[in-house]
Design a protein around this nucleic acid. Sequence first.
DNA 1: CATGAATGAGCATTCATTCAT
DNA 2: GATGAATGAATGCTCATTCAT
Lengths: 213, 213, 213, 213
Amino acid sequence: MPSVRSRAAPPRARRRAGEIIDAAASVFAERGYHGASTQDIADVLGIRQASLYYYFGSKEEALEQVCMLGVEGFVERATAIVHAPGTATDRIRALVAVHLAPLGDRRDYVRVFLRERGHLPDVARRRVGRLSRRLERLIEEVFTAGVASGELRADLDPRLATLAMLGMCNAVPAWLPVETGLSIEAVAQALATVLLDGARGRADARRTLRRPR
Amino acid sequence: MPSVRSRAAPPRARRRAGEIIDAAASVFAERGYHGASTQDIADVLGIRQASLYYYFGSKEEALEQVCMLGVEGFVERATAIVHAPGTATDRIRALVAVHLAPLGDRRDYVRVFLRERGHLPDVARRRVGRLSRRLERLIEEVFTAGVASGELRADLDPRLATLAMLGMCNAVPAWLPVETGLSIEAVAQALATVLLDGARGRADARRTLRRPR
Amino acid sequence: MPSVRSRAAPPRARRRAGEIIDAAASVFAERGYHGASTQDIADVLGIRQASLYYYFGSKEEALEQVCMLGVEGFVERATAIVHAPGTATDRIRALVAVHLAPLGDRRDYVRVFLRERGHLPDVARRRVGRLSRRLERLIEEVFTAGVASGELRADLDPRLATLAMLGMCNAVPAWLPVETGLSIEAVAQALATVLLDGARGRADARRTLRRPR
Amino acid sequence: MPSVRSRAAPPRARRRAGEIIDAAASVFAERGYHGASTQDIADVLGIRQASLYYYFGSKEEALEQVCMLGVEGFVERATAIVHAPGTATDRIRALVAVHLAPLGDRRDYVRVFLRERGHLPDVARRRVGRLSRRLERLIEEVFTAGVASGELRADLDPRLATLAMLGMCNAVPAWLPVETGLSIEAVAQALATVLLDGARGRADARRTLRRPR
DNA sequence: CATGAATGAGCATTCATTCAT
DNA sequence: GATGAATGAATGCTCATTCAT
């Protein structure tokens, strides 16, 4: 099951097509979908605006491709984690890590997915929306299971915890390029800890943590 | 050859002007700044598009007004909280509450501030950016103080905690209208608890909480 | 025969109306008819744009009034000169003087008449055009008479001489405010001499002029 | 966040581009810069208004191009004449001739330069203004030299003579299309004679001229 | 692969004008 | 006398898109 819509192969050159979508992603990320013109994309590539239409059929289609590449893999990876053995705590840490991982090499794609998917035409928006909701449900399941097993607070609202986690994680691409000095992995670690144990930390955890530091 | 046309500044009726930017806020929130046309705003108001220009000088100016009303008061309220007596925990709870409060009557303004301020012209963007940064610094101070006093985890990165908190809170307007059944105050309570004690909760807190539920 | 179109007197206040047309003349002179907005005129007066319409019915009407005040009197004065006794030389000197005289207190009106009358609506343009042509014909008559009497060069084309004179004179308002150090009367003297005797001067005149200088 | 959008500058087809500013020149000459709409220009060409923007970036830029083509060559030709050997009289005759020559094939460009250059944006206006002033200075030099050599009247003000000459010449495009029966060269001859010897003519010249006529 | 040329639709903005107050 | 509010019509300009080459 190919993640990117397979078409009649040629005459669309695969290699160059990737550069074109890269450019689109970067421009959409920078200026927003409606704030970016196809001319802006062409400028990045050093080609004429009309030439873009050799690679995509419309600006909306370009947005759709970028968005799909922005979510692609998220659900698969989350599914694997949720179905793997381990405590809720382990799974949540892994989900956070995997959620932030693509910021390394796909930041623009992810940012565009997060902020611009709302401008997709109806059909595509719903397609993309289904993926998002599936992902949210997977995360929510982990919280629900954690509460049920007594591993997480009994009064935790799993829906709200999910949204808190997504809020924390999805904000990262907005400040990551600016706030320096931290690797993506370190950020994931720290955020997962806040999510699990809070700013005050668990009483037992604090005892362990205080000394070595 | 007058250098700058200083005209007598039409005294923009206060009452109606409020309705006009209300409409602008709602349209910008719905479709994004660049995705919204001034015609869309006029349609909401049931007036002609040209009539808008009696109330604002340009679409950009309208965005600026909406953004300013979106941050207005945030810094003041945060400052009051930070300087009030109490534990870091109290202050953080109060900050979260106060951060979410305007979502009741000003959701559109806040959403526009959060998502569209990047499209403001340079001067205005910097002005608005200064406010944001001041707010972030206030929040960070609270975390720093909490760590120093031993109330918060010694290994907590105050900068990161701030960004986590802002991520959690700023995501709320995106789902609040959809996810029903919770008052803003309840959301604030729950998010503050996650932020302070995590999904697992503090060992002592859990004992108290488990029973009544 | 009233020079300005007489109307039912009130409610048009005479005094203030003069100031309004003054402002219009100055703005039209500065920026051209189509380059000037009614707002510009209102700015000069420190009133609201809508208030102008108390004084004139349309922008075009304002232009017409300005243009009429710009030619007003020209024909009458030229007629008087042409019919007065004296040599062609005297008459031409007097025509030049009288042609430039209004530049003192009515420069804007004259400039607008000269450069903007073409933008008048058909009826008004023709009315104004008739005045211009009458003036030209008066001047041409003087040249024709001068040639006939032998006072002017036999091979002089009166039509062309007229156009040369008008060209010289009508260019003056364009540079008068800039080129300093000369009164309007002095300019008129000098231009008339060039027109009559040329840059080289008449053989006899030169003899007279050279010494005293 | 690219500060200035440097785009690959469409290589504007030379041939067609010429026709486009031809049309612009004719429309600007006819109705004035502010009185002409880009639609008017498109109508002349039989293309859509938006298509114009393939050839120029803005209406102002079109005006600038027209103005530049309107002065282009003037200074060069005047310089050549001023530096050529010959009497002041010869030079002035040549300057007048060369000044009027472009009215044959470039009347619209010259008219636009003469009447509309004031509406150019600051930078362009100054650029164009420098050319004008250089031209005026060249002409003035000839008059100054002529006075110094005794060839012209001792009491001639070279500045004023320059302005008289320019006034006479620059008025020509306004009536040339209307007043028939004279070639541009004949007009140049006649005007130069008026400028040099006046309407009365020099005493010696008159003797020669009277008889044959 | 890519481009030059052109277009149709839409957009923000300006402007002269109106009219009840 | 003058104004606040609004409007209809245009204006300059942008933009996604098309298509023959």
